[in-house]
């Protein structure tokens, strides 16, 4: 049997899936990136391997997410794709009629508009991380609850407080203020979930025509509070897949399947010594930050040079 591995390495979490020829997810895993993508992926692959059926041959590997290039090199992937395309492909394989994909991840959020199965427009948050997963998890810490329980708390609230949603810093000071004045915890949390939705629609979804069927995904889609306020604000039923956090990985696995060559991957990356070395080039006033990538002590790639100097 043939399988295809898709890895989505985000800022907060690393996701991996292995699919079969019919795009069915055979195994999947979700772990924290913890600031070290190579280590996270090594761990991820070991876990996936332990769950694999014996007769499975990996015929393709795809990577996406913010560390896609680095991990693409590490795994020798046949496809390295940006997360916008990967998410759209993944979602369309399960919900071919989707017209809008809302996606909120750890550090970025995006909206993808689809017509007749192809992307027609998209947007991604640019500078601000307000309303993304990392904002929610830092606020959860402040309130002393687990981020996984956020949604349940929010659903309990009958009277969500108003929280300024424009900016993370303002939202946080507003939140502190509301807490000190004495509002209930669940009301504050519900207010926060609503603030995430309003922020998203005002920034990422600005000027976009959001039409149903809508699919909501990314880590934050697991938060029932955010989902509820999305449905309320947009006045539409929104689908959240049980694998909504894996759509990027699924999409890139499908892309690697479509792009397969006759290679069989063995996934023995545990013994590969993979190292990166950063340096500042002082060749000119650009002072480029150069990153050298070594695989088993061989220099395999150099990034960051603006002038094309090779450093070999």
């Amino acid at each position: 049997m043939n399988g295809y591995l898709g890895v989505d390495i985000g800022s907060i979490s690393t996701k991996g899936v292995i699919i079969d020829e019919n795009n069915k997810i055979l195994v999947s895993e979700y772990i924290w990136t913890e600031g070290n993508p190579t280590e996270a992926v090594t761990k991820l692959i070991e876990i996936l391997k332990s769950k694999l059926p014996n007769d499975l041959k990996i015929k393709g590997i795809g990577t996406t997410g913010s560390a896609r290039k680095l991990i693409g090199l590490l795994l020798d992937a046949n496809v390295v794709k940006n997360e916008i395309t990967a998410h759209a492909i993944g979602t369309l394989s399960k919900y071919p009629n989707t017209k809008t994909i809302l996606e909120i991840g750890g550090q970025d959020s995006k909206i993808i508009l689809i017509e007749d199965g192809i992307i027609i427009d998209y947007a991604m948050n640019t500078l601000c991380a307000a309303g993304t997963g990392s904002f929610l998890s830092s606020q959860a810490k402040r309130l002393g609850i687990e981020v996984e329980d956020f949604g349940n708390y929010a659903l309990k609230s009958k009277n969500p407080v108003k929280i300024a949603a424009r900016c993370t810093v303002f939202a946080e000071s507003d939140l502190v203020h509301k807490a000190q004045v004495g509002y209930l915890k669940e009301d504050i949390i519900a207010g926060l979930c609503r603030a995430v939705v309003l922020n998203y629609l005002n920034n990422v979804g600005k000027g976009k025509k959001i039409k149903g069927p809508i699919v909501f995904q990314g880590g934050v889609s697991k938060n029932k509070g955010v989902l509820k306020y999305f449905e309320e604000t947009l006045n539409e039923k929104i689908t959240v897949d049980k694998d909504s956090h894996l759509m990027g990985a699924l999409g890139v696995a499908i892309l690697s399947k479509n792009n397969k060559k006759d290679t069989i991957y063995n996934l023995n990356i545990k013994n590969i010594e993979f190292k990166t070395k950063g340096l500042e080039c002082n060749g000119c006033a650009n002072n480029c930050e150069i990153l050298k990538i070594y695989k088993n002590k061989d220099l395999i790639d150099v990034w960051g040079s603006k002038c094309g100097k090779t450093f070999k």
Binding site: K81, N82, I84, T85, I118, I119, I120, Y122, M124
Partner: peptide, 8 residues
């Protein structure tokens, strides 16, 4: 964003 645009 550019890559996604090109894919599109």
């Amino acid at each position: 964003r550019l890559e996604a645009f090109y894919d599109m």
